[in-house]
Design a binder for these strands. Structure first.
Lengths: 212, 212
DNA sequence: TAACATAGAATGAGCGTTCAATCTAGAATA
DNA sequence: TATTCTAGATTGAACGCTCATTCTATGTTA
């Protein structure tokens, strides 16, 4: 089918098969969960024999790890793009609509929830999740620091970390909302989120935490 | 072991066995997930034979349904207690510390995440989750309406629903944070949450949603 | 005795994984 | 060009095990 002069790298064909398996596994995991989906199901969905999957992945756990890593990596590109914008806050506010829609998407949410549930009991998966989260958090922190510095607001670590934590909690909470209240208008949520994010980014810091 | 004069109702002994099974199942599901935990494990943890479990539950699915219902029911008591308070907003703000701590508790979070993941693919579980969510949402809505009415603020449905959705998203997002960033200081999160909740409850409404 | 509680073995299906056997297609050789 | 060689791709059966569930037999109690 492909008449390349050179058969390209060793991995060309193998890479295709590998991502073919990952795509099929992703579908199956979404539909039945990591433990509910079987290698046999995945192999059928990928159009190959069950045994052949073991030429590309050591075991089922390795497939899970690959999918978890791939899924979380997507987050990293997002905040990096904000930082490149002329006005950081504007870029963030404009990204909210898309961010809300994505987290509320049933297919997206279902796999992300499965990853979180698995991470809460599988140390290997937890390690991946936390490592990606760290890189993601420092990227968002840097973005936020820029936005506040441009407005002459405090940028101490406690303030920045607190704001980041609240904002990420808000967005990740939408995963739960997509299950609990799937018909709620995404535009309404986005509007409310915009106000909260704006207030957080342009509001006072959290240097002096005191019990009320 | 128990020398009651009357064996009490038919369910007395049976009820004890039932909750014995549910407690054991809850532990196992927390540790291995709904599909990762086996009836054999649950029976060992409950101190009875595997077959005997089927005298109290039709099948594994029924155990899952019972646990999901029990877990979610706890939410309902919370907002009802707020409403009884002298000042609703103060009661809510005071409840934040506890609410944050609870959602960040690894054991609690792990089961709740499992429930959400299961609900996103199991229609029976989804039905339970949504029904409890509806009752919970209207309870919080009523509480919020009181708080805003007492301050002469708008209480239209769109405003109330938007605020409720954002607040619940924040709190449920903590489930994800407990996995991603488990060591973050809960007091800092609570402080930030207090400000956001106060601003939302006492701020302008969302009657006129418009794109920026 | 009658009714329920309980244990434990039995069942058949499905699991993740392994492995020997085949297929395929290009390189090497003649 | 025709033939052989070879190494990777691929299959499908088989393995040992565990699963959820059912069945039968025995205790226990009232």
């Amino acid at each position: 089918m492909n008449a390349d002069a050179q058969p390209s790298t060793d991995s060309s064909r193998a890479e295709a098969r590998r991502s073919q398996i990952l795509a099929a596994a992703s579908d199956c995991f979404r539909a039945h969960g990591f433990h509910g989906a079987s290698i046999s199901q995945i192999s059928k969905s990928a159009g190959m024999s069950a045994g052949h999957i073991y030429h590309y992945f050591e075991n089922k756990e390795a497939i899970i790890a690959a999918i978890v890593g791939d899924d979380l990596d997507q987050l990293l590109t997002l905040s990096a793009s904000w930082r490149a914008a002329a006005d950081v806050l504007d870029a963030m506010l404009e990204g909210i609509e898309e961010g809300v829609g994505k987290k509320l998407d049933r297919n997206v949410a279902s796999l992300k929830l499965e990853i979180l549930a698995e991470a809460s009991r599988n140390p290997e998966v937890a390690k991946i999740v936390r490592s990606v989260n760290q890189r993601c958090n420092s990227s968002i922190s840097e973005t936020l620091r820029l936005a506040r510095a441009a407005r002459g607001l405090s940028t101490d670590d406690t303030t920045i970390a607190s704001i980041v934590e609240v904002m990420t909690a808000m967005f990740e909470g939408l995963l739960a909302r997509s299950v609990r209240n799937p018909d709620f208008d995404a535009a309404l949520i986005a509007a409310a989120f915009r106000r909260v994010v704006r207030d957080l980014v342009t509001g006072p810091g959290f240097e002096h935490v005191s019990r009320p």
